[in-house]
């Protein structure tokens, strides 16, 4: 089986769940739903030495549904489903002869779906809300697409991530603020290295809480205990041990009490074997808790 990961897909989850998430479970019967378009187009990447090298321009576009729904006051179900994922590479053209040397290709499939369950470790009103989350990454996307086997809309492996979130909301001069942080461990299969993840998020509510500005830092540190090109079979194409530290910014605006629009940008400022261009997202959301 061919496996190719430039691990651009993993950014889509961690940086598309800005604003929602955190240590606060949804109340029973309430939920948060978001339909968004996330994309990254990159012509350079971080290499295994952390430096940046060029590559053929590659694009990944995910049309995703993200949902949180309160099963009980403590348990919240989570779904992140890239309903349509597109991965393409540009034509490689001779600047001398203008001849197409290597034709570009694209695949369009469903992406890797994440399902999860969040449990509120503290009761509502706690000074320091805590939650524990289990996320299962299902290999519903496609790997090894295209004639070179270099296109992907998933990583082809079933992973399980455990995450602990903590945070709190407060007010300063009648302005609502919140901060949260998390640590997580991602157990990966199929020869991929396990990962330690962490992040912090802060948001501020303006215009009577209609406009929320959010900033977030996410990091993935690989344990580098998986396979490399040296240890897999000669017919495999394999990249592993992706790492990054990235920041993201998001704006959310409630057009009505429950319905709003959002836009975000995120990118890694340190990384290994990962795209070295920013990703963007626009979406609409429905927040039942308001």
């Amino acid at each position: 089986m061919k496996k190719i990961i430039f691990s651009i897909v993993l950014l889509s989850f961690s940086l598309s769940t800005l604003f929602a998430g955190g240590p606060w479970p949804q109340k029973k019967g309430f939920g948060y739903f978001k339909l968004s378009e996330w994309w990254v187009v990159f012509d350079q990447h971080y290499t295994d030495t952390g430096l940046i090298d060029p590559n053929v321009t590659t694009g990944v576009f995910n049309t995703s549904l993200y949902a949180e729904y309160g099963l009980t006051d403590r348990f919240t179900g989570i779904l992140n489903a890239p309903l349509l994922s597109r991965n393409y590479m540009n034509n490689l053209v001779s600047n001398t002869t203008k001849e197409v040397l290597i034709p570009g290709e694209a695949i369009n499939t469903i992406g890797d779906i994440d399902v999860g369950l969040k449990y509120g470790l503290t009761k509502e009103g706690a000074k320091l809300p805590l939650s524990a989350t289990l996320i299962l990454g299902l290999p519903t996307g496609k790997t090894g697409g295209g004639t070179q086997g270099n296109l992907q809309t998933g990583d082809g492996e079933f992973n399980q991530m455990i995450k602990i979130d903590a945070g709190g909301g407060f007010s300063v001069k009648n302005t609502s603020l919140y901060m949260s942080t998390y640590v997580g461990f991602n157990n990966r299969t199929n020869g991929y290295s396990e990962e330690f993840r962490y992040g912090v998020e802060a948001g501020v509510g303006l215009i009577n809480k209609k406009l929320w500005l959010v900033a977030k830092l996410d990091a993935v540190e690989s344990l580098k205990n998986g396979d490399t090109a040296e240890t897999v079979t000669s017919t495999s194409l394999f990249a592993n041990n992706t790492e990054f530290v990235g920041i993201g910014f998001e704006t959310n605006y409630y057009i009505t009490k429950k319905f709003g629009i959002s836009a975000s940008a995120a990118g890694a400022f340190r990384g290994e074997i990962i795209a070295a261009r920013p990703s963007y997202s626009v979406g609409v959301f429905f927040d039942m808790s308001k």
């Binding site: 994309w39 187009v41 012509d43 053929v56 321009t57 694009g59 576009f61 597109r86 393409y88 590479m89 540009n90 034509n91 490689l92 053209v93 001779s94 600047n95 001398t96 197409v100 040397l101 570009g104 290709e105 694209a106």
Partner: peptide
């Protein structure tokens, strides 16, 4: 931006 375009190589 989701369409396949051309990358030119100095060859």
């Amino acid at each position: 931006s989701a369409c396949i375009q051309d990358d030119f190589i100095d060859d």
